[in-house]
Computed example of a mutant assay.
Amino acid sequence: MSVMTPVAEPPELKKYSGLQRAAALMLALGHEHGGPIWEQLTIDEIKELSQAIAQLGRVPAVVVEHLLVQFSGEVSSMTSLHGSFESTERLLEAVLPPERVKEIMEDIRGPSGRTMWDKLSNVSETVLAGYLKNEYPQTVAVILHKLRSDHAARVLAELPNEMATDVVMRMLRMETVQKDVILQVEQTLKSEFMTNLSRAQRRDPHETMAEVFNALDRTTEEAMLTALDEKAPESAERIRALMFTFEDLGNLLPAAIQVIVRNSNKRELALALKGSPEEMKQLFFSGMTERAAKLMRDDMSAMGPVRARDCEEAQTNLVRLAKSLGDRGEIVLVDPKSDDAMIY
């Protein structure tokens, strides 16, 4: 009888909690192998695990391999897994009825928290007070009674003075609230407020404009940002901070550079590097084989003089490729404003 040698725990595993390890495991198993496990979980367990998968982000291969030793042959070629709301929804659709998937996804897309009251405590006091202004004071009293005291205080301060006083008086006179009343209020909040909040959450318009500016040619981009500097300097600064530029590719991990090189048009890559600093050239050459790097250098030399506009266009297309690969979870793009990696 053979004895399996214990596999040393990779240091990367230490930053994952038990719940996150379970989430990575279920994501790796997929619906075919994970289906029987999902069927044994309660609705609360499914929600908790789904929330963890949706927020998982990138999982290093060494962690996946350690969690799935018996499937190491299958996962050893993977560089990472990417947990997202979309992959979570696809996974659940394969093992659960549509109505349960809808309920779970609406729940986990809302503000994070295990219970409805946890979630409500993560909603901005301004947003929550705006909703409660239209409710009966007695209902508001019940809701604030269930919230964390610090958050309830902030919500109370946002309510009109007369209404806030009425709510406080009702909270002072409040006896133990019947369970069915709590459940009814909770259901109303879930169906009317939390669901609408999830749907109403919109991206910062500066993020949208940053993507638009990324797609512009360099000359137009600078002209528009310069004009914006005069009329709305704060907006111009935020857009610049949110833009992912060709220079930001220099912050990528070597593995991400290799993926970009494999997926790029080699003629366009050569043109983009032709107009880039030597450090950027070296970064991309390091993502190629020695022979491929030499051929790329030869191609760049053979081009002779090229127009700056053509180089900038090729660089813009390379950024678009990087963002597309990031959207698909194939590479990790590094936020230039932070030391932390983030999935775009």
Rank of each mutant, 00 (worst) to 15 (best):
K102I: 04
E103L: 11
I104S: 01
I104A: 02
M105R: 01
M105Q: 04
D107S: 09
G110Q: 00
G110P: 00
P111R: 09
P111F: 05
G113F: 08
G113T: 11
W117H: 05
D118V: 07
K119I: 13
K119S: 02
N122W: 10
V123W: 01
S124E: 10
S124G: 05
S124N: 12
E125R: 03
A129K: 03
G130T: 04
Y131N: 05
Y131P: 00
L132D: 00
N134S: 14
E135I: 11
E135S: 08
Y136S: 07
P137M: 06
T139C: 02
V140A: 13
A141K: 08
A141N: 05
I143P: 00
K146G: 01
K146Q: 15
K146E: 15
R148L: 13
R148T: 12
D150N: 10
D150C: 02
H151S: 09
A153I: 11
A153M: 03
R154I: 04
V155A: 08
L156V: 09
A157L: 12
A157Q: 04
E158S: 05
E158T: 12
P160T: 15
P160I: 15
A164W: 05
A164M: 06
D166L: 04
L172C: 09
L172Q: 10
R173W: 11
R173D: 13
E175T: 14
T176S: 09
Q178T: 14
K179A: 12
K179L: 12
D180K: 11
Q184C: 04
Q184R: 12
Q184D: 15
E186L: 06
Q187Y: 10
Q187D: 10
T188P: 02
L189F: 09
E192T: 12
M194V: 15
M194E: 00
M194I: 15
M194G: 01
M194P: 00
N196H: 10
N196I: 03
N196M: 11
L197Q: 01
S198K: 01
